[in-house]
Nucleic acid binder design. Structure first.
Lengths: 204, 204, 204, 204
DNA sequence: TATGAATGAGTCTTCATTCAT
DNA sequence: CATGAATGAAGACTCATTCAT
């Protein structure tokens, strides 16, 4: 019973994932999910309260990992990073996301480009907001450690940088055709660019 | 009567603009546009062939200005810009967009965030592609002028930078609450950051 | 004025003929006729009261010729035909229709297959009814002239034979691919078949 | 519930049959079918995928019987018929159709006169084509059995004869007012006429 | 005469969700 | 746990025709 229930949940989620990826949240149809999963439409509602809940369930693993890796204050050695190794600040974020991207490429596409209309439609914003807070905190800590730096970076700039980060992830995820070395070159450029930019801003 | 016609077109477009902004292209309803404009639904179809045509009509002024200011090769002193004044490369783009943003804030929101499902749904892509081409051309010219620089920037990086630009515009447009001085500070930071980044990459 | 009016009428009718042939009466659209003719939709209503009236106007020449040649009692030497030359009864009808078919092939298609929904939608019936009456009269005259023959043919049979005739015309008109000699062979067979059939029935 | 479902299907089909007969396929309205059947419009789509599917469901029994009785090659002793009993060739067809006509009078009207616009709109053609093939085969067999006959009948003539047959059925079905004896007389005439015709053509 | 403007009922089909069994 | 049945609002778009100017 319980076992069966889990199987069915899984079946539903697989079909849903597929349908969501094909059509996006809004255009995906519950009927289609039912058809593909072989589960009766009404039975699906015994497992999930709504289309939106299914959507969230599909993205839950990804969201948890994002939360844990990229947004959880505890996870961040970021903030302990030394200014002279600022490069590694970005490197750390990169490494974290590289894992996520590899494991959740499709889900990321879903979350970033196809969530419109769902309760996760504002993920970009919420992520950016949280990430901005982390960035601000980072600024404060750096200032405490190295009083000489300029920490008067506008919140909006940090906000944009967080969003940029998301944009980068989105583009990597969208371009299936990119080879590993292309990505590596890009990331090197990205880090070099960013590091130089930050140094300039912080007048290090 | 001719006057009348223009008035009605205008009325429809106003109501449509409003509805599109509220719901986005896909979720906007012709019925609602008719209701809000006070024009009979069927009469609307005497002025526009389809929902999509209305949408394009709403965005036409913006699109024309974008095309002219930001994408027209003739408009660009960009490419003649000296490397030591690279700052002004970005400054120029900024100035152009500042005007556009002021005049078409709402339309930009529409175009960047709510065009999904319409024939302008791929604006981000088309803009980025065109802009990337311009960027590549810029690299080539710079290389010709200053053979010492590193012009081996990956196309994907330039692509991302074009997209970033769009992201920036989008965010500015989305945050109605930003004051003029906040924006100014941000732009200063943005230019400083970018200039430093580019210099690093190009090993100037 | 009057001259112009006639020109416009003609223009409308040409466009209408075209549209009706393409779509059939029901699916033809007044808007399309207006578009194709270059005449304002509302102006069309200055020349014709309704779509149906246009349709009838398009078919008027054909209908008049049909009326005159195939249904007008005065036109029939049919009835004076001698029984021994009965062949020529059909021959006569054939000749008449051959002319009509050549001149009004398209209109015949229209009338026979695409008039559904118009006031001429029942042409098959009305034609058949009139033609049946003529057939009955022919029977009576023959009986008067040759009392020996069997004239007790059921009205329904004659009705069917009239309809058959229409079917034949319709098929010839529909099959553009038929060559002249194919049609001739067919007509020969048709007449041979019919003549033998009638002789049998009338016990001549 | 299973019973329920069948009942509802039946209810829908009855209402649909009625509406189709009144208006023809094209002009019949789903809304009207819903109204008449008392079934919610959207619920109808739980039973049938489209208007066309309903139409086909209404005509399915008829079509199956037609296929089986009149077009199935196995069903035909037609082809084994002796030339001297050619009368019975037609007689056999007649008997088959008499049964069909009695049982499916309304459906035949629907199929022959009101199917325009549906996927069965070409029934006349498809039937005629199949029937023509059968006729051609019959000619060949006769020729093999009685080399003396003329089998050089044009395909188009046989085509027309097949169509004639359909026309006859259509007219019988259309004329509700015909009494049994009227029909019988007609059929006798029809057979006599046809038999004489064929004999003449085949020079038997 | 000519036209732009207007109308309102109409088309088929899809949707996510609920509920009694 | 599972399902068949049901719902009502909504989707974009087309139609032939009328009317004031």
């Amino acid at each position: 019973m319980q076992v069966q229930k889990i199987n069915i949940r899984r079946t539903i989620l697989q079909a849903a994932r597929c349908e969501f990826l094909k059509k996006g949240f809004k255009e995906a149809s519950m009927r289609a999910i039912a058809r593909q999963s072989g589960i009766t439409l009404s039975n699906i509602y015994n497992y999930f309260r709504s289309k939106d809940e299914i959507f969230r369930a599909v993205l839950k693993p990804l969201l948890e990992e994002v939360e844990q890796k990229a947004l959880n204050p505890n996870s961040g050695d970021y903030l302990t990073t030394d200014v002279f190794t600022m490069k590694s600040y970005q490197q750390k974020m990169l490494d974290d996301f590289t894992v996520i991207i590899k494991r959740y490429r499709s889900e990321l596409k879903l979350l970033l480009f196809q969530a419109n209309g769902s309760s996760l439609g504002n993920f970009r914003d919420t992520f950016t907001d949280k990430h901005t807070l982390k960035g601000m905190e980072y600024m404060r800590r750096m200032k405490a450690k190295y009083p000489g730096i300029n920490s008067e970076i506008s919140e909006f700039f940090i906000h944009i940088m967080s969003l940029w980060w998301l944009t980068v992830v989105g583009e990597i995820v969208s371009h299936d055709e990119l080879t590993g070395s292309q990505i590596e070159q890009f990331l090197a450029e990205y880090i070099a660019f960013g590091t130089a930019g930050w140094k300039e801003l912080m007048k290090v």
